[in-house]
């Protein structure tokens, strides 16, 4: 398989947050990482990307380690990870997407700036290019960040909770673009927790709650029995609190 993740374990200060994760996918898929709150979805994504240390485990893209494909990876952070007061304009945010392929010492020139504008048009945000990034609404900000990812011209996209707290129109724009990217042969991983959209949005899903409950095509994994098992811990937790379930 094109993308293989083997035996990932992650712990924070001695406590295991994610364990024993194995999955593999072909490229050209839109893949959801699904699970209840605190299941370790974002942690798994960051561990796959090598952004946080893992206890062990390996990740390969067509047999290559991640260090050799980094320039082809676009990452969209959770909204809470960004300082929205940072002195940067919308167009400059998108322009940073051209940095990875520019390399050291080279500055973005006319060509890169035009490309950034094109990416901004794709998400319908060109009218805001001279706004400071914090002046936009949550959905608009997410679209700008998607434009930046497009400017990276990456093969692999990793989006951490892109649909949290955004308007319906922006969600529509974003999912349409992601599906287009998928049709162009790109591979997209999306951390997501709204179960109502799972079947409409994704080709494959990774179902986790600390450990893996399934990975594969939606119609195989998204079954009542598997979903119950994965979300079981929540039910027990609620019963423990005396909430009538």
């Amino acid at each position: 398989m094109a993308i293989e993740v083997k035996d990932i374990h992650v712990s924070y200060s001695g406590k295991q947050v994610v364990k024993d994760i194995n999955f593999s996918f072909e490229t050209g898929k839109l893949i959801g990482i699904i699970g209840p709150n605190g299941a370790g979805k974002s942690t798994l994504m960051k561990a796959v990307l090598g952004l946080i240390p893992k206890d062990h485990g390996s990740v390969s893209f067509y047999g290559k380690p991640i260090s050799e494909v980094r320039k082809n990876i676009a990452y969209l952070p959770q909204r809470s990870a960004i300082d929205w007061d940072f002195p940067i304009l919308v167009r400059d945010v998108v322009l940073t997407g051209t940095y990875p392929k520019l390399g050291l010492f080279k500055r973005p020139r006319k060509k890169e700036k035009q490309f950034a504008t094109k990416c901004l048009e794709k998400v319908g945000m060109e009218d805001f290019s001279n706004n400071q990034i914090g002046e936009l609404s949550g959905g608009q900000q997410q679209r700008v960040f998607l434009a930046r990812a497009l400017a990276q011209e990456a093969d692999y996209f990793f989006l951490d909770e892109p649909f949290v707290g955004i308007d319906v129109a922006s969600e529509r724009v974003i999912i349409d673009i992601l599906k287009n990217l998928r049709d162009e042969g790109k591979t997209i991983f999306v951390v997501h927790h709204d179960l109502s959209k799972v079947e409409a949005y994704f080709d494959d899903i990774i179902l986790i709650n600390k450990e893996l409950y399934g990975a594969g095509p939606v119609k195989h994994v998204y079954q009542p029995e598997t979903m119950n098992k994965c979300y079981q811990m929540d039910v027990q937790f609620m019963q423990g609190l005396g909430v009538g379930v």
Partner: peptide, 18 residues
């Protein structure tokens, strides 16, 4: 300047691209 800007604004994205 380019690297200082992007890593100050979005460190995780910068780390993800290497």
């Amino acid at each position: 300047y380019k690297e200082l800007l992007v890593s100050s604004f979005d460190e995780t994205m910068a780390a993800a691209y290497g």
